[in-house]
Each structure stands twice: as C-alpha cells, then as structure tokens.
C-alpha cells in the first residue's frame, strides 16, 4: 500500500500567541515549530499499516525551506521519503491544490491528513483534496483498520460515532485514537538524514481568502472567589449574576 501523509509545521502547543504589525502578522519571534500533533498520529498509523515491507509512506509538506526540520522529524519517525512543495502555505485551498497536483501525477492508495492544523484549524485540506481528486474524504476519524481493497474507519459525530467502509483511494483526517504517536529512535534519526527529500516547485493557482488581521480573546475580569463551604453562594451567583443556570 502506498500512503501519502500531509504534514504541517505549526507553533508548539505551549506557544503564547501574539501578533505584530498592528495585529496583522503572527509573531514568530521565539516560537518553536513542530510537526502538527494530529499529523503525527496520521503518520504513526501509516507506518503501522506499512510495517514489514507492506508498502511505503511518503510525507508531503507545502512550505518554505524552514519547514525541513519538521519534515526530517517525520522521516526520523519512519516515513520512507518526503516531498516539499516549495511555497508559503497561503491557505488550505492553496495547500490542497498543490498536494492534489502532486497526487494526480503520483497516485496513492490512501491519503492521510491530521484532523486539523493547530494554527489555522480549518479541517479543510482533507475535504478539498478529496474533491480535487474526486475521491471520498472522511473528516475526523478515531480508528482506521485497513483491508486489501478498502478500509473501515470510525468517524466522530456529535454524541456518538459512525462506522464506515471506504474503498481506496480516499482521504482521511485523523484524530486521537487512530494511533499512539511514535517517537523517533536513534536509528530513525540517523537514517532520516539520508532519506530522499524532493523539492517541487508550486503550480500557480488563484486563492479566495486573505487573513486581514488577528484578535486575541478579551481578557476576563478578576476571579470572584467563593468560600469552599458556601456552594449555595456560587449557585446563586451563577443564577442571578452570570445568568447561566
């Protein structure tokens, strides 16, 4: 089985998000970038599915040269080879379009993405890729079992789950439960340096969205403390002051 895993390069989860230039630019000063945690899950499952010579895992990233550390990490975890499409990821549409061009020329049985990127959180790349390649897409899966010609996936729905069987090729966005994230071992780290990383130039495409500015959530006022033995007071405040019960 040939699997393509889409990986994004995102700010570490501990990052305090701030902006510059009158709130129009994300402040990357001092920010450490990592492999998107959900993509790590997708990659880990792809490696499990192709273990012992049962296939290959290609990771693909749309990004500038600075993302190569993240791509090498994916190779160290166990991907077979990597592709970087040399462009700034303008938005999900731009990213999906570039990856679709690549996947049209180099077909895969299964394409995995993370459920969402933790920076722009669109959950959009998987569905857009599915549409561009005219194949099924399934968002937010918690389980993926692969058979020869199809896979069974468990999809999250409000208050429950849905179990589907989908023939290859298809695209799936993975979340927790699909696999335990793998940690690179010494051998993986050593071999990652010599694994193939192809750099491909982007194709031109019109985009439909622009980020104009950012805001951070409004700060909350000072916390109102209630004594531990006066829970009735809390209930009263929630009823009369906050009006939420």
């Amino acid at each position: 089985m040939k699997i393509l895993v889409c990986v994004s390069n995102v700010p570490d989860t501990t990052t305090k998000i701030t902006f510059t230039d009158n709130n129009t630019q994300f402040n990357t000063n001092g920010v450490q970038f990592i492999l998107n945690p959900y993509d790590e899950i997708a990659l880990s499952r792809a490696i499990e599915l192709t273990d012992n010579g049962k296939g290959s895992v290609t990771v693909i990233n749309v990004g500038e040269v600075t993302t190569e550390a993240t791509i090498r990490k994916a190779l160290a975890i166990g991907a077979t080879d990597a592709v970087r499409i040399n462009a700034k990821p303008h938005d999900a549409w731009y990213v999906a379009y570039q990856i679709a061009q690549y996947a049209k020329a180099n077909p895969f049985d299964l394409i995995l993405t993370g459920r969402e990127s933790i920076d722009y959180n669109g959950s959009k790349v998987a569905g857009m890729l599915g549409e561009l390649l005219d194949i099924p897409s399934v968002s937010i899966i918690k389980k993926l079992d692969a058979a020869d010609s199809d896979a069974t996936v468990e999809r999250e729905i409000e208050g429950g789950k849905e179990i589907l069987t989908i023939p290859y090729p298809f695209v799936a966005g993975t979340a927790e439960g699909v696999a335990e994230p793998k940690i690179p071992n010494m051998r993986g780290i050593m071999s990652a340096r010599t694994k193939p990383l192809a750099v491909v130039e982007p194709v031109e495409v019109k985009t439909f969205s622009e980020i104009i500015s950012y805001e951070t959530p409004a700060p909350r006022g000072q916390v109102k403390l209630v004594a531990a033995d006066d829970t009735a007071k809390l209930v009263e405040l929630l009823h009369t002051e906050a009006r939420v019960i």
Binding site: T15, S209, E210, I212, Y214, T216, P217
Partner: peptide
C-alpha cells in the same frame, strides 16, 4: 470579512473571502 477561530482557540482571525 468573517471572524473565525484560529490557533486552536488562542486567537481569532479576520478572513476576507475574495471570491
């Protein structure tokens, strides 16, 4: 322009849809 969540709830982005 639409206000949407970004950075997993740590911020919001104002996104202009140009299509």
């Amino acid at each position: 322009t639409v206000k949407k969540t970004a950075f997993s709830g740590k911020a919001f982005a104002m996104v202009e849809l140009t299509s």
